[in-house]
Amino acid sequence: MAVIPINLAGRSYQVRVGSGLIKELPAQCGALLRKKHVPIVTDVNVAQHWRDAVDASLTEGGFEPHWHILDAGEATKSWSVLEELIDWLLAEEVERGDYIIALGGGVIGDLTGFAASVLKRGCGFIQVPTTLLAQVDSSVGGKTAINTRAGKNLVGAFHQPGLVLADLDTLGTLPTREVRAGYAEVIKYGILGDAAFFNWCEENGAKIIAGDVAAQEYAVMQSVAAKARIVAEDERETTGARALLNLGHTFGHALEAETGFSSRLLHGEAVALGMVLAARYSARRRMISAEDAARVTKAIGASGLATEISTLGMDCNGTKLAAHMLHDKKMDAGTLPFILLNAIGNAVLDREVSMEDIAVFMEEQLQAG
């Protein structure tokens, strides 16, 4: 088992990466589970694979698991489901010193974390991420949120978990599409800040997707360590360092909005397309070479992820996609900073991007491919 510390003032915690962690929940969670009654939030898909194992682990340790099982999918990150979840937690008599277990992917982690952040002005939660995407990204760093009609993750809070348990065994139950979507967030760390890790991903990406446990473990460890360094430097995204983690997200969120935040386009798939667009737009602005943009595109495409937005079959134009971006939570004084590339392994925050030019660029991309 690897242990990666997230060092924050007064709120430090560990991310533990390894196999068999769910079977060891009582030992892993230790003093965080201070009462026998343990509230667990998950979705129907995860419950099908892991409820029995969690029940057995907790029961053997002398605990009583209580489940709240939600529908799977991005639509679950909504006001109505948040209200339902909070009402259930109150009925379960969760106290401020208690910890809720969030067992699932990014949707469950985001929703449960946000509920924990507001329940009785803040209680604890433990992340047990069951997707590659959640293990390398959304479970670490304390960003919690729900979606609204205006856009993705526009209502939320910074609320750090007390512990993250990334059990690699859960990756074996994922459909290949979900593993690919998670891989987008893995290779992101190489593209934005670690050229050597990008090189490793070029060589080993296929192993990760094929289920090679050693490759998956290395990918999760490296990704979490990279995110830990950035979060420790800029927890609340005030200096610009943490904003670099949003590489591909501004473009990607626009595509998610246009496709209705649905299973038509998974979050990781949107981020992958967004990183291709960020690389191409960086080349358009002559920040990187066309060859480097093509290398990013090839590396992402080699994993089986789409690299052309025309494949989505969207009935829209570049102006509409650019308009979606104006709801981005990074908007500041009427301008939208973009995460672009000075090189593979060197992302930068660019505050001088013209939205008119973005609209033209997106129209070109819609017509390409």
Rank of each mutant, 00 (worst) to 15 (best):
P337I: 06
L8T: 14
D212E: 13
E364K: 07
S282V: 01
I100F: 05
T297L: 05
F338T: 00
S262G: 04
R121I: 01
C29R: 02
D315G: 04
V15M: 03
I100E: 07
D194T: 11
A166I: 07
V140I: 09
L70E: 08
G162C: 12
Q28N: 06
E217V: 00
D234R: 00
A322F: 05
R280G: 09
R351S: 11
L349M: 08
V81N: 13
E217L: 02
V353S: 06
D52S: 13
E95F: 01
K188P: 15
V17H: 06
E178Q: 11
S310Y: 00
Q127W: 07
N45A: 03
E93H: 13
Q160E: 08
K207N: 10
G30M: 03
I40F: 10
E74G: 08
A323D: 12
E185A: 12
E308P: 01
W67L: 11
V44M: 08
R280Y: 03
L174N: 10
A225I: 05
P337F: 00
R286F: 02
P39W: 02
A181Y: 05
I339G: 04
A232K: 01
G122R: 10
G240R: 07
R284E: 08
N346V: 04
G190Q: 15
A47E: 09
F158K: 06
T176Q: 13
T173A: 14
V213T: 12
S12L: 09
S303H: 05
T144L: 02
L265Y: 00
K329F: 04
R285T: 03
S78M: 02
